[in-house]
């Protein structure tokens, strides 16, 4: 796939664009891992670190946008090059969202009290591991332009959703039994919700990777199941 472009400058631009996206992916992945660690350990420092680092993601997103617009304006890319640039623009927005969700988790982490009492606190890290692995693998698929891996990642989202359902039920029954801890339980519910959204967004990135590599959209869930 990595054929050379006759215009070296164009090649440099595309490579730089992909590099920026990868950097964003790395940041988003670490944001999720750190936010969950902050939640489990109750470490405010880690949580603050996640919140502070989210700014870097915003900066990178702006940089990707600028570079993508510049490539389109100056080089008028065609076919798979154009798809590459369009996908990069979309992916960077999604990765920024993943960073935001992680930031939300970090914020919630600081509000949860008496964390030892919650059973879902063992489920949430497992769920986050799944979602984090999706983000990691989707960036690998992006780097390798691997449409097969991308399709496989999309299939994994169901597991994250199933986790969310079980955590939801668990927390609701916890709230009914312990009305005193409803505030913390609600925070945990938000955390689970955020992780579930991260899984969905990883799926979105996977769809974009698939599109950039093959030109085929894998959007509708129902289509996927029939395929």
């Amino acid at each position: 796939m990595a054929q050379e472009h006759t215009v070296k400058a164009f090649d440099d631009d595309i490579t730089r664009l992909r590099g920026l996206i990868a950097e964003m992916g790395g940041l988003a992945e670490v944001a999720l891992t750190d936010a969950i660690e902050a939640l489990v350990k109750g470490s405010e420092d880690l949580a603050r670190g996640v919140i502070a680092r989210d700014k870097k993601l915003d900066v990178l997103e702006a940089e990707v946008d600028k570079l993508a617009v510049r490539i389109i304006a100056l080089r008028a890319p065609m076919a798979d090059d154009l798809r590459e640039v369009i996908a990069a623009m979309k992916i960077c927005g999604v990765l920024e969202r993943i960073g935001d969700y992680s930031k939300n988790i970090a914020k919630s982490a600081m509000k949860v009290e008496q964390r030892r009492k919650f059973e879902p606190l063992t489920l949430i890290p497992a769920m986050a591991d799944l979602a984090g692995q999706m983000v990691h693998d989707v960036m690998t698929a992006y780097a390798a332009r691997d449409a097969v891996l991308a399709a496989e990642i999309i299939a994994r989202d169901d597991k994250v959703d199933a986790f969310y359902d079980s955590i939801f039920r668990n927390l609701v029954s916890h709230m009914m039994e312990n009305p005193a801890s409803i505030t913390s339980a609600a925070e945990l519910l938000f955390v689970a919700r955020n992780i579930e959204r991260i899984g969905d967004h990883a799926t979105n990135v996977a769809e974009m990777v698939h599109y950039a590599a093959t030109g085929i959209y894998l959007t509708d869930r129902d289509d996927r199941k029939n395929a």
Binding site: R16, G19, A22, E29, V30, A143
Partner: peptide, 20 residues
Amino acid sequence: LGAHILGQDARIVLRHPEAI
């Protein structure tokens, strides 16, 4: 890391913030 890394931006491979 996969055979695709040749000719790519280094950040494609080393995307972890620490590696950056």
